[in-house]
Design a protein around this nucleic acid. Structure first.
Length: 170
DNA sequence: CGCCTTTGACCGGCGC
DNA sequence: GCGCCGGTCAAAGGCG
């Protein structure tokens, strides 16, 4: 688990543990053993009400209390991470339909909302570029896929390669 | 024709 | 109540 390549330059054991959980969940077909598997964070998940955020390679977690008086208001597990990338859309192999875009306060870039188009799958994600550092794209996943990937993974791997190059030259 | 964006309207929660 | 804010809906249009 220590082989994730400077992408998240973390010494945090918490990060390692989370990464382990991600790989354990292993939604992507095959780690391919090419060293990129550590970068595949899409499938990482956090416990209920736990928001996991990576900032500048460091690891931050924030608990989110959603359970108020509603009780039924339990949010799906959420997972957020940031990547340094020129492109906003990180193709992770699933098919997404965009269902909204909103301007966010204190941010000059809009936030985009996507939903997984697989029948019966309600996984959502939001993508937002940070004003603070335009090179960073923040992606937040909510919920987990309970079905296989629909698209080829080739594109995603390509993008991962790009990201790796990009981060290494940092 | 099927699937996707775009975009303003709408909605619920919250603070004043 | 009212207005803001974040999130979602849905009509219209684009594109292969």
């Amino acid at each position: 688990m220590e082989n994730h390549h400077g992408f998240f330059t973390a010494g945090s054991s918490a990060l390692s543990a989370t990464a382990a959980a991600a790989l354990e969940y292993g939604g992507f077909h095959g780690g391919k053993g090419d060293g990129l598997s550590g970068l595949i964070m899409e499938q990482m998940r956090a416990p209920d009400n736990l928001n996991v955020i990576f900032q500048n390679g460091s690891f931050v977690h924030e608990t989110k209390m959603e359970t108020k008086k509603g009780e039924k208001k339990i949010r799906n597990p959420r997972f957020a991470f940031q990547t340094r990338s020129q492109v906003d859309i990180l193709d992770d192999g699933y098919r997404w339909r965009k269902y909204g875009q909103k301007a966010v306060k204190n941010n000059k870039f809009p936030r985009s909302y996507y939903r997984c188009t697989h029948q019966g799958c309600s996984v959502k994600k939001q993508i937002q570029r940070l004003t603070k550092d335009e090179g960073i794209v923040m992606t937040t996943y909510e919920g987990m896929h309970s079905h296989p990937i629909q698209k080829s993974n080739d594109n995603f791997e390509h993008i991962l390669n790009q990201m790796q190059i990009y981060t290494n030259s940092f």
